[in-house]
C-alpha cells in the first residue's frame, strides 16, 4: 500500500513541478495571458516602417505597454500600416504621436507613443494620425556626409 501510494506521490510531485516550470516560462517570458484577455488594437500609418518586426514593443514614456501585431502595406498610398495590441489601462488621445525608434544605435526597432493633449480618447480600432517614420542610420550618415561636404 505504501509502495503504491509512493509511486503516485512521486509521479504527482513530478507532474506538478514540471507544469509549474512550464507555466512560469509561459507567463514570465512568453507573456501568455498578460495582454491577451482584454488588449485593444490601434493602428498607425508610417511612410516607412523599415526594420520594425511583428512582436516589437510599443512603449509609452519608456514603459512597455503592448506589442506590434501586424505590419502591412496600404496599396493606395504605399504607406505602411502597423497594428498594435495595447494594454487596456493605457488611454491615448487622438493627437498622440507614434514614432518608430531604435533602442541604442544598432538595437531593435520599437514604436514609441508620445501622449497628446486632446480631450478625445482613441477607441479600439482607431488610427493614430500623427506619426514619425523610422530613421535609417544609413540616411543619417549620408546626410551628414553630404552636408559636411557642402560646407567645404
Amino acid at each position: 500500500m505504501t509502495n503504491k501510494s509512493s509511486l503516485e506521490m512521486s509521479v504527482g510531485l513530478f507532474l506538478v513541478l514540471g507544469l509549474l516550470s512550464l507555466s512560469y516560462l509561459a507567463v514570465k517570458l512568453g507573456d501568455i495571458g498578460v495582454f491577451a484577455d482584454d488588449a485593444y488594437t490601434l493602428s498607425a500609418r508610417f511612410v516607412s516602417s523599415s526594420g520594425l518586426t511583428e512582436g516589437a514593443f510599443v512603449e509609452v514614456g519608456g514603459v512597455r505597454v503592448g506589442t506590434v501585431q501586424n505590419i502591412r502595406v496600404d496599396f493606395d498610398s504605399y504607406e505602411s500600416v502597423v497594428d498594435m495590441s495595447l494594454d487596456p489601462n493605457i488611454k491615448l488621445q487622438d493627437d498622440a504621436i507614434a514614432s518608430i525608434r531604435t533602442s541604442g544605435i544598432i538595437g531593435d526597432k520599437f514604436v514609441k507613443i508620445a501622449p497628446g493633449g486632446s480631450d478625445i480618447y482613441l477607441e479600439p480600432g482607431d488610427e493614430i494620425l500623427e506619426t514619425e517614420s523610422s530613421i535609417s542610420i544609413e540616411e543619417l550618415i549620408s546626410k551628414y556626409i553630404f552636408e559636411s561636404g557642402d560646407k567645404e
Binding site: F14, L15, L17, G18, L19, S21, L22, Y24, L25
Partner: peptide, 13 residues
C-alpha cells in the same frame, strides 16, 4: 512524451 518536455521546462527554469 510526458516527462521529457516537463524536464526541459524544469531545466530551463
Amino acid at each position: 512524451l510526458v516527462a521529457v518536455p516537463l524536464l526541459t521546462a524544469i531545466f530551463n527554469v
